[in-house]
Design a protein around this nucleic acid. Structure first.
Lengths: 128, 128
DNA sequence: CCGCATCCTTTGAGATACTG
DNA sequence: CAGTATCTCAAAGGATGCGG
């Protein structure tokens, strides 16, 4: 549509895109939101086990940051041994469809991307 | 909808979500795609200047990786001085709407998130 | 069971200087 | 102008051990 609209898009230091990227560009946040959207309430150890390759530290850190931003809700049961459950808040849930859009796009196009990448590498190796 | 559908979602080491995250979770890829979607063809220095705080190195690296994956097209004009133009490929363009979905979500909700975060921090400081 | 604290490794990314 | 090549540093993330 628009070929040149200078000044109309702001890509500078704290533009809207970067805010989103800064918040969700880490390794685990999106993954945990997506997981909770499918599984509903989950315990700490349940999340850890389902993801598989996340360290306890990063799970703690990521859950805490999601909680602090109001994206998930943390329920602590002071039993012995203690039990903690996490679930998405309304705010967190409102993000889920957009994540799934991206995932769908990936399902459809990542194969092609990997293929392109391989070809590109081969081309580079023949030239120099 | 579904409260528990164990086994139906795969969140393991190279599930679809992680593929997308690995590809686009870096600091600059999404930003450059979004920029090119608004401005059309752009020269190297034009991109650098518009973004403002990207180093020459990271711009080169990011553009090269986007090119290798077939998300952007690189046109080299062997003049003196040389000129290089970048634009989105069809593949790259197909991602744009989803990025904009996320940006819109951000516009609408990041304020609330920052507010939540501030409150959470205050709460933490009163307790311990 | 949950999660904090500490230490350590790895990675991402900036600064700088140099080429076609 | 549009890169490439090093060097360096800060931050993300992992491993481990302790504590409520």
């Amino acid at each position: 549509m628009s070929k040149k609209t200078p000044g109309k898009i702001w890509i500078g230091e704290s533009c809207p895109i970067r805010q989103v990227l800064d918040r969700f560009g880490d390794k685990w946040s999106i993954l945990i939101i997506e997981l909770l959207s499918h599984e509903g309430k989950m315990r700490f150890s349940e999340i850890a086990h389902t993801i598989g390759d996340i360290s306890q530290k990063m799970l703690t850190v990521t859950l805490r940051s999601l909680e602090s931003d109001g994206l998930i809700i943390r329920q602590f049961y002071p039993e012995i041994p203690p039990r903690v459950e996490y679930e998405l808040s309304d705010l967190g849930r409102s993000l889920v469809p957009h994540i799934q859009q991206l995932t769908n796009w990936g399902q459809e196009h990542m194969g092609k991307i990997m293929q392109n990448r391989k070809r590109f590498e081969e081309k580079q190796q023949r030239k120099p």
